[in-house]
Amino acid sequence: MENLKIIEEQVTVSDELDSLRSAFPDCQTVAFADLSSRMILKTSSAQKTPQELMDRLCEEAVSIFGDIGSNLSLSDDTDAAQAVVFTSTSLKIFLRGAQEPADILCCVCSPSIDVDSFLRHAQPALDRISQGPSAA
């Protein structure tokens, strides 16, 4: 019964990631990670992505929500919740769970993506994942 529950949770997380990516073709990779253990737990990607790149993506999230986020904050009592990193060639979006701050989504997108629309869909998706299969 416990195994069944684990499988059910994994299917739900995968479904959420796949659904987000299929709704936004400009998003090539979505990864669900645990910030406290610094591990990518599930990914959905247009192409097979080497584990090294996924680990690197997780490292980026750790630094952005850590050092960079705290150094750019105007207030000491609010943590970074979302981040968008925009270069001439790529756009990466990082989100934190509203209820579970250790739950994060790391997204690799084309610069042409509609950032507002993507954030409006991605944050609820992450929060559903955080709440587990009953909420999804």
């Binding site: 952005i64 960079i68 986020g69 750019l72 904050s73 105007l74 207030s75 609010t78 943590d79 970074a80 919740a81 979302q82 981040a83 968008v84 990193v85 925009f86 270069t87 001439s88 509203a98 944050q123």
Partner: peptide, 11 residues
Amino acid sequence: GSWLINISYGL
């Protein structure tokens, strides 16, 4: 180079 980073605080 040219880059932009945005951090949102609170949801």
